[in-house]
Design a protein around this nucleic acid. Sequence first.
DNA 1: GACAAATGCGAGTGGTCGCTCGCATTCTTG
DNA 2: CAAGAATGCGAGCGACCACTCGCATTTGTC
Lengths: 218, 218
Amino acid sequence: MSDTSEQEQPQAKEQPRRRQARGERRIAQLLEAAARVFCTTGYTAASTNAIAREAGVSPGTLYQFFPNKEAIAIELGDRLVHDMRETYGEALAPVDPATPLEEAIGSAIDRFITFNTEHPVFFALMHGPDIPGRMAETHDQLHATLIGRIEGLLASLMPGATPADVTRTAHICLGVYKTGLELVLAHEGAERDAYVQEVKDVLIRYLTPLMGDRPGRD
Amino acid sequence: MSDTSEQEQPQAKEQPRRRQARGERRIAQLLEAAARVFCTTGYTAASTNAIAREAGVSPGTLYQFFPNKEAIAIELGDRLVHDMRETYGEALAPVDPATPLEEAIGSAIDRFITFNTEHPVFFALMHGPDIPGRMAETHDQLHATLIGRIEGLLASLMPGATPADVTRTAHICLGVYKTGLELVLAHEGAERDAYVQEVKDVLIRYLTPLMGDRPGRD
DNA sequence: GACAAATGCGAGTGGTCGCTCGCATTCTTG
DNA sequence: CAAGAATGCGAGCGACCACTCGCATTTGTC
């Protein structure tokens, strides 16, 4: 019971693993291979042997660096979330309340869609239906962070709304974005751009009537 | 190809299976059990042994009536689509072009959400990421039908739009509905109703500015 | 009741997959 | 260079799963 199986013990008993440069390279190699396999087949259908093969490595070597299949997805997910926070800041796309709604929505959508097109695994791991337990935690955490951020933005724009209203609206916005992302990723070139614009329009038209008098409009 | 797998063959060569009433009952029983298991675990993770157990039947009995696991999902899906068409008509929620937009959207959303709350498997089988090949066909067929219906509705409301614009708008609408459905199913009671209203609002506010002069508004 | 067909059972089969183990090779460190 | 640690290999183990087979029981028909 209560076995969280973390490698953080006050006693330095659990860290005889001195990693060599070769090992770090292998890990990166394996994670890239895993990303490709997860993208094409999804998490559950991806076999560890397939990941090892994709990385040009034997199954045994894979298990030299990862204790099990789930750990690969977790490490990949953690690195993605880390990259995301590093790229967009800890607060995830902070917005000045004075910016016009169109601009705020536009830049937020652009940021997240860019991130997703550059890291297709992110979508596969986060929105896949067959993600492992610990992965779901990472997802839920990110989800909660985003909802919180959106709530913060909306609260200042929806004067007469209850907290429940704000939360509900935030969930709708995130859901619309999520669906839009799916459609955007399914198209390319000009059509993709057109879909991006549609998603922005949906959100702008949805949110505009909710706001009271806009501060600093002129 | 062109194997519709119906039990209607001119040559009586393929139908030595004279089904007894008991058999039909078992089939219904198995499909109900499969629906429950698919709902809780999804298609891929659902084991045929678990379905048989849920139905209070041995694995062998299951395979007396279904050639393989996929056939269970296909039969279930076909029956759901059949029910849907029977409930809402072949055209799937036809709308009089003279009805106001709010009313048209409202009734369509209500219909589909009701169907989904009454048949939770539908969502699990259609939006699950791990659906089998033939199941995807059923889904794509239904998807195309719905897109076509929405396009028909939008075409008369978007005077100056190209066909590509109409198609894109239709996909956005269906996507918004899909996301909304997810959120609606995740809540209950008054909160669920509130989400239903939000989804309707999103669509109404998205579509209203697209229309030119409304015909028959007087 | 007699016979065949339909139904029912559950241990068993073949295949896949996550993961391990023993051993070889390469690197670091003194 | 020597010793030990880190890395690398791939056959193979155990578990699980879709599916089968031989046989028992029930049902429809004459």
